[in-house]
């Protein structure tokens, strides 16, 4: 498989074309906006948080295939998780796309998100893959500023 095929895995292409949870949940009580000025990607992540639990999550906005698929798969991965689990997942995801988490064992926690391993061969695309995650983190922390990847 070429590096390009590894980057644009079938599951990533599929999510980029038909993103899941592309909506604003009715019970949204936290949200944040993320922006990558380099390429113009811009997403809003909406959360319905109760206590420590992420009851619902959605996103809207525009961006490249990697950022869109990443946002879509992130919403699936963190829905129903605790804030702490979501933070842990982001940590592992970040390790994956920056060239860490090389063994299958290390990737267990990531599940389907392991499809993003190919991003590590394209350092300029790491920001695309992590934009929605940074934005979610910001929403969880209740920050008001637009998250920028720059």
């Amino acid at each position: 498989m070429t590096e390009l095929d590894e980057l644009y895995q079938e599951v990533i292409l599929e999510h980029s074309k038909a993103p899941r949870n592309y909506r604003r949940p009715e019970a949204t009580n936290r949200s944040a906006e993320g922006y990558n000025p380099l390429c113009g990607d811009r997403f809003t992540v909406f959360l319905d948080v109760e206590g420590d639990a992420i009851r619902d999550i959605g996103f809207q906005g525009s961006g490249c295939a990697i950022s869109r698929a990443s946002a879509s798969m992130m919403t699936q991965s963190v829905k129903g998780k605790s804030k702490e689990e979501a933070a842990r997942l982001f940590e592992e995801f970040h390790r994956l796309v920056t060239g860490g988490a090389k063994t299958p064992e290390e990737r267990t926690i990531l599940g389907k998100l392991a499809a993003f391993a190919g991003v590590s061969k394209f350092p300029v695309r790491v920001k695309c893959a992590t934009l929605a995650w940074h934005t979610m983190q910001s929403a969880l922390e209740g920050k008001q500023d637009v998250v920028s990847t720059e």
Binding site: L4, Y8, D41, G63, C64, A65, R125
Partner: peptide, 13 residues
């Protein structure tokens, strides 16, 4: 069909 950023990556290859 393709976002400029993805196009840029594919063209680079």
């Amino acid at each position: 069909h393709v976002h400029p950023h993805d196009l840029g990556t594919i063209l680079d290859r």
